[in-house]
Design a protein around this nucleic acid. Sequence first.
DNA 1: CATGGACGTAAAAAAGTCTTGACAGGTAAA
DNA 2: TTTACCTGTCAAGACTTTTTTACGTCCATG
Lengths: 77, 77
Amino acid sequence: MVRSSGPIRPKAGEDVAGDRIRTRRNELGMSQQALAKAADVSRQTIISMEQGNYAPSVYLALRVGAALHATVEDLWR
Amino acid sequence: MVRSSGPIRPKAGEDVAGDRIRTRRNELGMSQQALAKAADVSRQTIISMEQGNYAPSVYLALRVGAALHATVEDLWR
DNA sequence: CATGGACGTAAAAAAGTCTTGACAGGTAAA
DNA sequence: TTTACCTGTCAAGACTTTTTTACGTCCATG
């Protein structure tokens, strides 16, 4: 059994961070574009994050967390 | 100035997470091997993380944080 | 001695992240 | 209808993460 490689990701089905991010963003009345700008990343990146199946770097996670006034633990479990 | 690509990382010189991780690990009297096992990753990965210039995925960060009884915010700021 | 643990370096392979840019559908307002 | 904003898809390209394997050193014991 070889865990081939690539960034560490959640087990399939345990990936709910995207939903929490989207929910939080909507609560704050922000568009994806606005969040992207606040976190200084591309809109594509925000889209991918919300759709799950995406394992951002800690630094991106911290930026998004800050932009949403939440902690990494809050959003990614 | 075009941010070419690849995971988001800290600005050069602001990368001190490695030191905090190593310090915390030593405080707990753990070897790199032990931490690697606790976080279920390779020892190489731990080495890279401690040496800085490395942007782990949020999920890896969460595992290491848990193994060190610390939050992601504590370690990566 | 020599055995073993802890740390470090190196390099290839596999799989991801993140950006840019183009294009398209839906909805709300002028 | 036209304009504008929001969301989504697709794809190429540049650069990174993480694993595995192997090898080299230092230090503490036996």
